[in-house]
Design a protein around this nucleic acid. Structure first.
Length: 508
DNA sequence: CGCGTTTGACCAGCGC
DNA sequence: GCGCTGGTCAAACGCG
């Protein structure tokens, strides 16, 4: 703790009596030290007085310490809350836009199936509920989401230059066995773009956020090849320093992320018998993106992939997810470090970045600022039992308590601009999304993720939500799990959205 | 023959 | 200043 402890010069007894209420007032209600001043004024000898003086000094010092710590915590808390609120508003924007787009697209385009629960079977693409969070508004949105994803437009961000997250996660029924990874050209039907931008509402207040969140991708796009390196060194460096580490259970040598990589090195790193492989993006000649792949020492089935840098070229939709992740991570991490008092001190105190501290990242997501390269770790390996899909697992139960950070229960959210219920629903959904969605590994776990989410939301909203029957969610989740890129896509989506949110908050 | 991988060497950053 | 470690380079090698 790097608290500047005030050690005032020894004071006389008369002063001490004055100092007491002052200090008590200063510390406020944060903490009260049981110091009894009256007692020693009458009975102490000189020696005793001196000793008491020392005691008093110590107490003062402690109080000062406590006071400063209290202030720091308050500041941090308010920062966290601010960031959360802005993120949440942002999130709601996305949701709203999505809904509107979906509603528009629904009429002319997709023969939107009946919004009933049974419709899900025939339209697995609605799984893509990457709009997961959108459900916070009610079950009625289900139909909208379906149409939004199946309509394939979802081009809310097209032409806006905003961070757009193309998720090649939906192999909907309408997309007959498309290889959404490589081909990518016809990715539209299977792609859900998560735009944090209220596309229709081009509010003027955006520029700041744009700068913050989208600057990395923009910066690289601005100078795609213009000397590749050397331009915008600062941005490049920042982007390069921020890393996204993904832990996934994977049998293949590398995680299928839709990008083309060329191996350029391999090392045995300390503390892990498994060699670490170094890959470089080969989609474009001078793409600065690299990744490191290493198997976990404890469990060799776990693949740890660390992405670094930002692509300076167009990517296939399947690869866009991870690309967005790294961009978002860069934005989020850099903004987090600038808004935090000191990353080093935070790390030293065991604190994480605000979002993580608020519990938004969930238990399987970690933000590390301790290292020279700030890293987001998405742990897609799950502690949950793969078979406990239909019910809450201990993990889920344990998580839910974590999913609602103290700030939420303390009523912070209720004071936000949006209706409290909105916050409550959305926040829980978000938390659950992170907990279940990110904490999943391969197929069954993903199933669990989607299912638990749906169950959660259905239990939240009361009337109308009951439409989401377990059987339906089962089918839905199965559809999700049929796509191997679901993990990375989901992780990317979340990280991306959060990155923008954090960056936006940082700009405020 | 071209492309990708392997592998030893080299370099830079960091801690002691 | 030295050693350790992580990251990168580039020649050699293998494969289609």
């Amino acid at each position: 703790m790097e608290v500047a402890v005030e050690r005032p010069a020894p004071v006389k007894e008369e002063k001490r009596a004055d100092a007491k209420p002052e200090m008590a007032a200063a510390t406020g209600s944060a903490r009260s030290l049981p110091i009894v001043f009256e007692s020693f004024a009458t009975t102490q000898s000189d020696a005793g007085i001196k000793q008491e003086e020392r005691t008093l000094e110590a107490a003062k010092a402690e109080m000062g310490e406590v006071r400063e710590e209290n202030e720091r915590l308050k500041t941090m808390l308010s920062r966290i809350v601010n960031q959360y609120q802005s993120l949440h508003m942002h999130f709601l924007d996305v949701v709203k836009v999505h809904e509107q787009e979906a509603a528009k697209a629904k009429l002319p385009a997709a023969p939107a199936p009946a919004p009933g629960a049974d419709g899900v079977d025939e339209a697995p693409d609605d799984l893509v509920s990457l709009s997961l969070g959108t459900r916070s508004n009610g079950a009625r949105r289900k139909g909208h989401e379906r149409s939004s994803s199946s309509s394939g437009t979802a081009e809310t961000t097209a032409g806006e230059g905003q961070l757009s997250l193309g998720l090649g996660i939906a192999r909907g029924s309408g997309v007959p066995a498309d290889d959404d990874k490589a081909s990518g050209a016809s990715a539209a039907p299977g792609v859900l773009n998560l735009s944090s931008d209220s596309s229709s509402a081009n509010d003027a207040a955006k520029p700041a956020r744009d700068d913050a969140a989208a600057s990395p991708p923009c910066a690289t796009r601005k100078s795609p090849s213009a000397a590749g390196e050397g331009v915008d060194d600062e941005v490049q460096q920042q982007a390069k320093k921020a890393r996204v580490s993904v832990r996934v259970k994977c049998d293949t040598p590398t995680m299928p992320d839709g990008c083309q990589w060329r191996k350029y090195g391999q090392k045995i790193s300390k503390g892990n018998p498994c060699p670490r492989a170094y890959y470089r993006c080969t989609v474009a000649p001078h793409c600065p993106v690299r990744k490191q792949v290493q198997r976990c020492a404890e469990d060799t089935t776990i693949l740890i992939t660390t992405y670094e840098g930002q692509h300076n070229h167009q990517l296939p939709p399947a690869a866009t997810a991870m690309a967005s992740t790294t961009s978002a991570a860069a934005a989020m991490l850099t903004s987090g470090s600038t808004t935090s008092s000191s990353p080093a001190s935070l790390a030293a105190h065991g604190h994480h970045l605000p979002l993580a501290a608020a519990g938004l990242l969930g238990p399987t997501t970690m933000v590390s600022t301790a290292a020279s390269c700030p890293t987001i770790t998405l742990d897609l390996t799950t502690p949950a039992a793969p078979h406990s899909l239909m019910h809450s697992t201990p993990y889920a139960a344990g998580y839910e308590s974590k999913a609602v950070p103290a700030a939420w229960s303390s009523g912070y959210l209720a004071y936000g601009a949006a209706p409290p219920s909105y916050y409550a629903k959305g926040s829980l959904a978000l938390g659950h999304l992170f907990g279940g969605g990110l904490g999943v590994s391969s197929r069954p776990e993903q199933l669990y993720a989607a299912q638990s989410y749906l169950q959660r939301t259905s239990s939240l909203g009361g009337g109308g939500h009951g439409a989401v029957a377990p059987a339906v969610t089962d089918t839905l989740a199965k559809a999700i799990t049929s796509d191997p890129s679901f993990q990375s896509a989901l992780a990317a989506a979340i990280t991306s959205v959060m990155g923008r949110g954090g960056a936006a908050a940082a700009q405020k």
